[in-house]
């Protein structure tokens, strides 16, 4: 419940403040968001599996974000930024789908 409230509060703050993303961070924010979504679904699945751990959740959340941004940054430096960000999004999307499938199996047995 607190997580849902936090999500709503964060969205409201974002809507209210309308901050501008610094130019340096602009290529990495979307990737970071996708990585954080992946961590969120992973945490939900771990909760249903019964082995949720807040420390692991925190670390996985932050490391997912940082690693995803780092990969894209590296790709930008190497000149393959577009392709690498596509790759990261594809991988994270597959993981989100598999986590969502596991959650679905937990909740609906289907």
């Amino acid at each position: 419940m607190i997580a849902v409230i936090g999500l709503i509060i964060g969205a409201a703050v974002g809507l209210f403040l309308e901050p501008t993303v610094p130019t340096a961070l602009q290529p990495y924010l979307p990737i970071a968001v996708v990585a954080a979504l992946d961590a969120l679904f992973g945490g939900l699945r771990a909760l249903l599996d019964g082995n949720f751990d807040d420390r692991v959740f925190l670390v996985s959340f932050l490391s997912n974000v940082v690693v995803a941004a780092l990969i894209v940054f590296l790709g930008d430096q190497l000149g393959v930024g577009t392709q690498l960000s596509t790759a990261v999004v594809v991988v994270l999307g597959i993981r989100i789908f598999s986590n969502a499938a596991a959650i679905r199996r937990h909740l609906f047995k289907a």
Binding site: A3, L7, F52
Partner: peptide, 22 residues
């Protein structure tokens, strides 16, 4: 755990909204 998840979710919601607006 709840507070931590709430904080991270708040961060995620903020980032999503900012990115969408951007």
């Amino acid at each position: 755990a709840q507070v931590l998840a709430g904080l991270l979710c708040a961060l995620l919601g903020f980032a999503i909204v900012v990115q969408v607006q951007q």
